[in-house]
Each structure stands twice: as structure tokens, then as C-alpha cells.
Design a protein around this nucleic acid. Sequence first.
DNA 1: CACTTGACCTGTCCGC
DNA 2: TGCGGACAGGTCAAGT
Length: 296
Amino acid sequence: MPELPEVETVRRGLTSLIIGRTVKTVVHDTPKSFPNDPQSVASFMVGATVTEVRRRAKVLMIDVSTNYTVVIHLKMTGQLVFVDDKTRFGAGHPNDSLVGMLPDKSTRVTIEFTDGSHLFFNDQRKFGWMKLLPTDAVPLMDFMIKVGPEPLNDDFTPSQFAARFTRRANTSIKAALLDQSVVAGVGNIYADESLWGAKIHPKRLVKTITAGEFKHLYTELRFVMNLAIEKGGSSNQNYVNAEGKKGSYMDFARVFRREGLECPRCGTVIIKFKAAGRGTHICPQCQQLSGILETL
DNA sequence: CACTTGACCTGTCCGC
DNA sequence: TGCGGACAGGTCAAGT
């Protein structure tokens, strides 16, 4: 589910909500969601205090005082929702109806803190996971070794962006954008949104994209991701932030899930089709396949 | 290696 | 109201 902006929104929320809290109990009943040795959990997670919440690509890392880290991937439907007594029982909370019900049938892991508050890991489809590792071992994970650079880092340049794609010359630009080893954190929403911004058809082969187009795509990708972070992410169905609230980027989306509506730039009706195995949205006027270099 | 497709799960929506 | 199929914000392990 969540892409870089949604995971970053959760990270910011958790930073203010759980740092300094100490784990009292950890309850889990779906091994796939929590594939950890009980001995390690008892020794290094229970009794540990949260010191930091970090993000790399779409992965969250909760560092604790035992020099261990809880590494979390939310995949499609994962949520991390913090609930304290005030949130759970307080009248007038905007999401009383949601967080008041937790844990629910999608709750895979419940972390109880010593002050009585809880962090719930909900995941309807069970694709996500929460792994406890020594902090030193996190950078050695396969994912961390393979993942590409953070697109929003200050030192990430347009030429670095373009260079990352050379390895994927013969695939479509959308497939390459979704490849986490090319650039970190791009998913289906922001791939479609940034390609619309740069006026590039998702099925264009990487090797047909010009230097100017790569630069434009770089700018648009950073623009949509920064805007989405500002808006607290995108919520179609499952995504919520650490307080159980939905994000509002979808109110600003230009093509994603807007098939049948008008392109905000030219008024042409937006269409949807499949590209790189994913539902894909474009303005057929703004984003055209170019002549002899086209691919189907 | 690079590239594509199906699999992993549960729930919802849409057409019959 | 029920049933089948397609689809959903992401990776992976296979296959070519």
C-alpha cells in the first residue's frame, strides 16, 4: 500500500508518539507478519525503550535501547496505529470510530507500552512484516543493499537520477520507476502522477527517454512526493497515519484513479489500462507514445 | 544479467 | 443475495 510519502508520514507521526516509551508486551498470532525468535523478542524488545524512528525507501525502522531495531514493511495494506487511553476513550477524537475498535481482525501485532498505550500493526492481506534485528545488521539486509537512492535527498541530482535507469534500458519507464533498486520509494500512485507531470507515456522504453525528459521526470517526481508528504499521504482505502487518520493527497491527484474524468491540463478524458502489470492512468493527449520508438 | 509473469492474502466491487 | 472474476497503494521467486 504505502509509498514513500505515506511511510514518511507514518515515520513522522511515530517519532512524536512513541519515542521514549518502553515496551511492556508484544502479542502476535500471524507468524508471517512477525517472523521472529521468541527468545530474541523477550530479551531485546520487551523492556526496551524506543530511541528513534527512521525510514529508508518504504521501510520503517524503530530503534530501541538494546541496540536492536524493529524493521517494518507495510506492503499493500499495512498500518501502524498508535492508541493511548486518551485517543481510545476521548470524546471528539476525529477517528474515534476507527481507533476505538482496535485491535480488530486485521491486527497482526500488538505492542503494549508500560504506560498503557499501544502500537497496533494491522495488515489485512498479510503481505507486510515486522522483523527484529540487531541495529548493526539492518544495513546488511538484502533489501538495504539493493535499494536505490532516496529521491528527495538534497544531494540527489537530476543527472544521478537519469544514470540510475541505464541498467533498465529495454523495459518501460513505468516498470523502471517501480523498480526499488533504481530509485527508492516510488509506487503505483506517484509513478502515474509523475509521468503525467512530465508528459511521458508509461510504456515508453527507457532507452527512448531523452535527457530533457529525465530531468522533467525528476522534477515532477520530487514535486508530487513532497506535496504528498505535505498532505499526509494518499488514502484510497487502507492507508492511515500513526494516529489512524487518512491522508488527503488523493484530493490533489491529477490522473491516479481518475479514469473517465478530465485531464486538469488539457481537458481530455483520462484513461486506464495495464502497464508493468499494474493499473495505469494517463491523459492520452498529454502522454503519447512517440512514433517509431513506441512499444506495446 | 535483464525482463516478465504469477504468487502471496483478504476484501470489495461489479456483472450476471 | 449469491457467485465468479477482476482488482487493490508491493515485493519476490520463478520462468524465458
